[in-house]
């Protein structure tokens, strides 16, 4: 089984986000970055399938040079090689354009399986994988929490709402979008880190007709969410004082204890 895993680099979960002065996105200059959470599980799942069925795991990430750190980490964890779709302003592409650029980069690889995360932690479109499947002509399944792959068939467990699940069987090649938390992610070993240095990272650039096509959706303004409730913040930075005040308020004001 040859598997391609799509991995996106996003702002660190704990990063303090500052809105840029045009209020169209965040200031990226001083941010630290990490891999989008579900993509880490997509890679883990791919490595596990490879352990069972042999083949190759290729990671593909699109973005500026800084995404090389995501690629290096994936190679250190055990991916065999990588494709880096390079460009500085690709973050603002629509999911359709992103999927088009990724499709262009991986089409000739003719993978048996393509794994993506189910939803990115920054834009959170939840679409790139499904659109990519359509562009590559592959059947797909989303929110996958278990992959049962053999040489003969692919059976996957999908999460539905409210504690329901469903199994699907489909032919390969196919595309799966992987849910977070479905396994224990392995860390890179020192040996893995050394080995990664010799692995191939191919750079490609997306074609102009994809990047320059007028966007059909555009962010006009970014801002802090409006609060739906007036929150009483207690303790003024002192957590213990806040706790004392909270107990009183729950008793005398909210009357829930």
């Amino acid at each position: 089984m040859n598997i391609i895993v799509l991995m996106k680099q996003v702002a660190n979960k704990d990063a303090i986000l500052r809105i840029n002065k045009e209020a169209t996105w965040i200031e990226e200059g001083d941010l630290s970055f990490e891999v989008s959470e579900s993509d880490g599980y997509a890679l883990e799942e791919a490595l596990r399938v490879r352990e069972k069925l042999q083949g190759e795991v290729v990671v593909c990430s699109m973005g500026p040079q800084r995404v090389k750190s995501v690629i290096k980490d994936a190679l250190a964890r055990g991916a065999d090689r990588a494709i880096h779709v390079v460009g500085d302003n690709l973050g603002h592409l629509s999911p359709y354009a992103t999927a088009s650029a990724l499709a262009e980069a991986i089409r000739d690889e003719k993978p048996d399986l393509v794994f993506t995360g189910l939803q990115s932690d920054d834009y959170g479109y939840g679409q790139t994988g499904v659109i990519l499947a359509e562009l590559l002509g592959l059947p797909h399944a989303t929110i996958v929490i278990e992959v049962d792959a053999s040489a003969e068939r692919l059976r996957v467990k999908r999460e539905l709402e409210s504690g329901w699940y469903q199994w699907y069987t489909m032919p390969t090649p196919a595309l799966l979008t992987i849910q977070s938390g479905i396994s224990q992610i392995r860390y890179a070993t020192l040996k893995g880190i050394m080995a990664a240095k010799k692995k191939e990272v191919k750079e490609v650039t997306p074609s102009a007709e994809i990047v320059d096509r007028p966007a059909h959706q555009r962010i006009a303004r970014v801002y802090l969410p409006q609060k739906s409730k007036q929150t009483q913040l207690l303790g003024n930075g002192d957590a213990k004082a806040g706790a004392v005040e909270l107990a009183q308020k729950l008793h005398t004001e909210a009357r829930v204890i």
Partner: peptide
């Protein structure tokens, strides 16, 4: 979570929770 909270403590839960437990 603070967007929908009635009461909030911005701080370390490891400090707040033991005190809250005792107060309750």
């Amino acid at each position: 979570i603070f967007d929908i909270a009635d009461y909030g403590i911005v701080g370390d839960l490891f400090e707040a929770v033991p005190v809250l437990t005792e107060e309750i």
